[in-house]
Nucleic acid binder design. Structure first.
Length: 289
DNA sequence: AACTACTCCTGGAGGC
DNA sequence: TGCCTCCAGGAGTAGT
């Protein structure tokens, strides 16, 4: 699913290929994709162009005039750029059933630009949302979400992390890292990757971590992001699997496959109703806390 | 305030 | 092969 690296790939694609290109038409095919503030509609984007794009965690914000689009791809959303004068990009969850043809049954929004470029929003499961609001409402919207620091930003800092872990002593590590108000950007796949790299069991309690283990966890977040972001995430790059991605993801989705470190078969379990993968030797079950 | 449960969806996988 | 059932899960919201 689209997590920070995939959303960052979308941010870069839009930033490099679709800014400052006049919007000439907007085609909303799945009305509930859009959540618009009172009195606003996507047709008000026509004649404007996107001037800036920001990302915080898994949220993207596009600015056009005094309007803002806030996009969340949720479980299965995808942003695709196409055009006669741009390289194009595919970021997020692919829609394999329909191949490369666009638009298709799961294409829910198309934004047409003056250059001939198009931005497609696709989503198999219809969970993604695009919010349209006045720029002046952005701060209020994000303040209300109370997002933690973006794990790929300078705000995600080692000493802060030690303190933040200490403030959530009773939390299990996996639910804690998935909590976007704790840190922002990690989802089910990358939390598994981070905990595997840090050799920590998903249900360890925060208060049982030694300072060294907190450092390992902090470092693992940065290292996994440093691997995933340059390749555009775990799912796809430019619409197809990434042959050069090697073994990545290292643990998620690898049930029964030998651990890359010790050869023990990876196990799949449920933690808070989420499929969770770990190495039973590298990430041993904690003692009773 | 801080938990948990429920909700939204449909392609793909598995059973027979 | 085909029909059926079930699963995947981020985050907003309602309920406790």
């Amino acid at each position: 699913m689209p997590e920070l690296p995939e959303v960052e790939a979308a941010r870069r694609g839009i930033a490099e290929q679709l800014l400052h290109d006049e919007i000439v038409e907007v085609d909303l095919r799945l009305p509930k994709l859009l959540v618009a503030s009172d009195g606003l509609g996507l047709e008000q984007l026509v004649g404007l162009s996107f001037s800036e794009i920001r990302r915080h965690g898994k949220y993207l914000t596009l600015l056009a005039g005094d309007l803002a689009l806030v996009i969340h791809l949720k479980l299965s959303g995808q942003l695709v750029g196409r055009g006669p004068t741009i390289p194009g990009f595919d970021a997020g969850h692919p829609v394999p059933a329909y191949g490369a043809e666009l638009p298709h049954k799961s294409t829910h929004l198309i934004i047409y630009f003056a250059s001939g470029s198009r931005l497609y929003v696709t989503d198999i499961r219809h969970f993604a949302r695009v919010r349209l609001m006045p720029v002046d409402d952005l701060d209020g919207y994000f303040n209300n979400l109370r997002l933690g620091p973006d794990v790929a930003s300078s705000a995600f800092e080692r000493q802060w992390f030690h303190g933040a872990i200490a403030r959530r002593p009773q939390s299990r590590l996996k639910p804690l890292l998935l909590d976007q108000t704790f840190v922002s950007g990690l989802g089910n796949i990358y939390v598994d990757e981070v905990l595997y790299r840090a050799r920590l069991h998903p249900e360890r309690l925060a208060r049982t971590l030694t300072p060294t283990e907190i450092d390992q966890l902090f470092d693992a977040v940065g290292e996994i992001m440093a691997i995933a972001i340059p390749i555009g995430g775990a799912n796809i790059l430019n619409g197809k699997a990434i042959p050069e991605r090697g073994d990545f993801p290292f643990v998620h989705g690898r049930e029964g496959i030998p651990c890359l470190r010790c050869g023990t078969p990876i196990v799949k379990e449920r933690v808070d109703a989420r499929g969770t993968y770990r190495c039973p030797i590298c990430q041993p079950v904690p003692d009773a806390n």
